[in-house]
Simulated scan of single mutants.
Amino acid sequence: MSSDAVAKVAVHRPDPPRDPRPAEGAEAGAPRIVPRRHLGQWAAAAVVLVALALAARSVARNDAFQWSVVADYFTTASVLRGLWLTLWLTGAVMALGFALGTLLALGRLSANPVLRSVSWGYVWFFRSMPILVQLLFWFNIGALYPSLFGVKTVDLLGPVTIAVIGLTLHEAAYAAEVVRGGILSVDRGQVEAAQSLGLGRWRRFRRIVLPQAMRAIVPPAGNMLIGTLKGTSIVSVIAVQDLLYSVQLVYHRTYQVIPLLLVATIWYVVVTSVLSVGQYYVERHYARGSERAR
């Protein structure tokens, strides 16, 4: 075969077959889309991980933290008693606070102007006053009322009772707004449909309004629960032997301030983590049937 014939064959050689189907999500002949490489984000993540590793190494190897002392006092009887009082106080304040807050929320939504005004005034007053001022005021209530119902105020209102009263009144003001917001989030058509079925006011609230309002109530209520758990530490100023006050009694005697504060901190972290897990499952329960349940 001559060289001209070889060249002609080379020129007329058919191209390899192409896949006539266009790439998924793109038209035929469109340029290939290459994912953007976020090099800056990966570099920042690496820096953060290195910083966290160095911080954890520093905390673990720093003898000033005295981890052996932390382990010795972590489950002592006095610390566990203080932890139990903290948990009990948190539960009592949340239960009483939300019970009173629900009544206040219903008062604010009432058609009665007196109930609306009184409820609004309560919320305004107790949200305006710092919780520490409230506790100190109740602690010194004997200066205003030496006796109540024929009983000396000092005998009637002990430190734990004062802590429950002060924290509950404070908590109820915030709980009222949380409950009111949850009730207002329920579509008005739901209530009107229940009215058309002849359901009474209480039954409408219990069976129709409240279950739907819980979707909006649970997340802020969970935050309030965790905040109340940590906020109970303020009762140590009136000599209530909660978790913080218990470790303070120990380090005032041993002068081991840092390890004893770590004991209280770790317990708060543990309990807060458990409550956060519980909040997640409660939110998922009330979010059934909605997009947030996914």
Results as ranks from 00 to 15, higher is better:
36 R>H: 13
37 R>L: 13
38 H>V: 05
39 L>C: 04
40 G>E: 00
40 G>V: 03
42 W>I: 00
44 A>Q: 05
45 A>C: 14
49 L>W: 08
52 L>I: 09
52 L>C: 08
53 A>P: 02
54 L>E: 09
54 L>F: 13
54 L>M: 14
56 A>I: 03
56 A>K: 00
57 R>F: 13
58 S>N: 00
60 A>E: 00
61 R>V: 01
62 N>F: 11
62 N>R: 06
62 N>A: 12
64 A>D: 03
67 W>Y: 12
69 V>T: 12
75 T>H: 01
75 T>C: 01
76 T>N: 04
76 T>I: 02
79 V>S: 11
80 L>N: 08
82 G>H: 13
83 L>P: 14
83 L>W: 11
85 L>T: 08
85 L>G: 06
86 T>S: 15
87 L>A: 13
89 L>I: 04
90 T>H: 06
90 T>Q: 04
92 A>W: 09
93 V>R: 07
93 V>S: 04
93 V>I: 12
95 A>S: 11
96 L>T: 08
96 L>A: 14
97 G>I: 01
97 G>S: 04
99 A>F: 15
99 A>V: 14
100 L>Q: 02
104 L>T: 08
106 L>Y: 10
110 S>P: 08
111 A>H: 14
112 N>K: 10
112 N>L: 09
114 V>M: 00
116 R>H: 06
116 R>N: 14
116 R>C: 02
116 R>Q: 13
118 V>A: 11
119 S>V: 07
119 S>I: 05
120 W>C: 03
121 G>T: 11
121 G>V: 04
121 G>R: 10
123 V>S: 05
124 W>C: 08
125 F>V: 14
125 F>A: 14
127 R>K: 13
127 R>F: 07
127 R>Y: 08
128 S>T: 15
129 M>Y: 05
130 P>L: 10
130 P>V: 06
131 I>R: 07
131 I>N: 10
131 I>D: 11
132 L>S: 15
132 L>A: 13
134 Q>Y: 03
134 Q>S: 15
134 Q>A: 11
136 L>T: 10
137 F>R: 05
